[in-house]
C-alpha cells in the first residue's frame, strides 16, 4: 500500500517545478506549461486526500475533473493571447510585452 506522503511529495515536486518554470522561463508557452504543472499538482492532492480521508465520496475526483476542464479553457484563452502577441511582437517572450507599462 502506497502511503499518502508519497503522493504529497510527488505533488510538491510537481508544484515546485511549476513555480520554478514560471519564475525562470521567459517563454510564455513555457510559463503556461508551468501553470499546468501547478494545476496538476493541485488535482493530484485532491485525489490523494479524497482516497485516504473519505474513500466513499468522490468530491476530490470531481474537483480534479473541474481543474482539468478549467486548465483546458485556460489553455485555449492563453494560446489565443499568445497567438495575437506573436502577431504584434513577433516573439512570445513575456518581457517584450511592455506596451501597457507607463
Amino acid at each position: 500500500m502506497i502511503k499518502l506522503e508519497t503522493f504529497l511529495i510527488v505533488s510538491a515536486i510537481l508544484f515546485s517545478l511549476g513555480i520554478y518554470i514560471i519564475i525562470a522561463r521567459k517563454n510564455v508557452i513555457a510559463i503556461l506549461m508551468g501553470v499546468e504543472l501547478i494545476l496538476n499538482a493541485a488535482s493530484l492532492n485532491f485525489v490523494a486526500f479524497n482516497k485516504y480521508s473519505v474513500p466513499t465520496s468522490f468530491s476530490g475526483q470531481m474537483f480534479s475533473v473541474f481543474i482539468i476542464v478549467l486548465a483546458a479553457c485556460e489553455a485555449v484563452v492563453a494560446f489565443a493571447i499568445v497567438m495575437s502577441m506573436y502577431k504584434n511582437f513577433k516573439d512570445i517572450n513575456a518581457d517584450s510585452a511592455t506596451t501597457m507599462k507607463e
Partner: peptide, 12 residues
Amino acid sequence: TGYIQDYVYVLF
C-alpha cells in the same frame, strides 16, 4: 516592473 515573474518571485 510589470513582469509577472517578478511578482511571482516576490510572492513566493
